[in-house]
């Protein structure tokens, strides 16, 4: 089953790619690029900054190219392929310097790692660079856990939290496993399961505005199970879900809130308490 569809003749019947084996991780690099993602950029910039701090704490020099924008996912999932491709190309060119790329969002990391292959399927020359980027791309929790091999002292008060992982983060990047393990390193943090934990929060990018009733029913269920989990707050490594879940909680006039995992982790290991 070596002949994957990307390499096959245009009319060849496709077979599914074989399940990838466990990813092998490089040694901790001296420097990395942070790809902040557009949602974090605009709505959760502190989380991006906390990601930088977490990486610096591990002795890594972080670059933040000012020319970065969006990975292209919104247009891609909406079917606007050409528009998505040009935006993707801009990021690809920008990140073409061999440095590891750390992304504080599973779905954008998944876009780099999985979907750029589809976006550039018809450009064999670009595909080589796409593969190279995919190989160098890490979601933040994955990078902290497996590349930095962090060893943390938890400076925070005992707390109970619920973890939400975005669907693409879960399915494309195994973020649920990485985040669980990472949170497990914090002595005073207890992670509580919530009902239908692996189910989608209803965001899905433009789905949330194209099908607001269905999406709304999903986020209502999600926020209910998060609240009923007994946790004090929810953490997630995905800006889109956070926007969805917090926006819904606020609309419902609930006090329960979610927080970006980077910010939560930074607060625990730095001892800084932010409002």
């Amino acid at each position: 089953m070596t002949e994957l569809f990307y390499d096959a003749a245009p009319n060849a019947t496709r077979v599914a790619p074989e399940r990838p084996g466990p990813r092998t991780y490089p040694a901790k690099p001296p420097e990395v690029t942070l790809f902040g993602t557009c949602v974090v950029d605009l709505f959760f910039p502190e989380a991006g900054l906390d990601a930088i701090r977490l990486l610096e704490r591990e002795g890594i020099r972080v670059h933040f190219p000012q020319e970065q924008s969006c990975c292209g996912q919104p247009a891609w999932t909406s079917g606007y392929v050409n528009e998505a491709r040009e935006v993707a190309r801009a990021q690809l060119n920008l990140l073409d310097n061999g440095l590891p790329v750390v992304v504080p969002s599973g779905s954008c990391a998944g876009m780099f790692r999985q979907h750029y292959r589809e976006v550039f399927a018809e450009e064999p020359d670009t595909l080589k660079r796409v593969d190279d980027l995919a190989e160098r791309t890490f979601e933040l929790t994955e990078f902290l856990l497996h590349v930095c091999k962090v060893d943390w002292q938890d400076l925070g008060q005992p707390t109970q939290i619920a973890l939400h992982t975005s669907c693409s983060a879960r399915r494309e990047m195994n973020t649920h496993l990485h985040a669980r393990e990472l949170l497990g390193k914090l002595a005073n943090v207890e992670r509580l399961d919530h009902d239908h934990e692996s189910e989608c929060c209803g965001f899905g990018g433009t789905f949330s505005v194209r099908m607001p009733e269905v999406s709304g029913a999903m986020v209502l269920d999600k926020t209910r199970s998060l609240r009923e989990s007994g946790a004090v707050e929810m953490v997630t490594a995905d800006g889109g879900c956070l926007l969805n879940i917090n926006g819904s909680l606020e609309k419902q006039k609930q006090t329960f809130r979610g927080r970006h995992l980077a910010s939560f982790l930074w607060a625990r290991v730095s001892g800084e308490v932010k409002s």
Binding site: G36, D41, G48, G216
Partner: peptide
């Protein structure tokens, strides 16, 4: 449709571009 289920999202006062550059 967004505000049927959510409050309107308010952008942060400084972007990550801004914060990261300063930092």
């Amino acid at each position: 449709p967004w505000t049927e289920n959510h409050t309107a999202p308010v952008p942060a006062r400084r972007s990550l571009h801004d914060l990261a550059k300063a930092h």
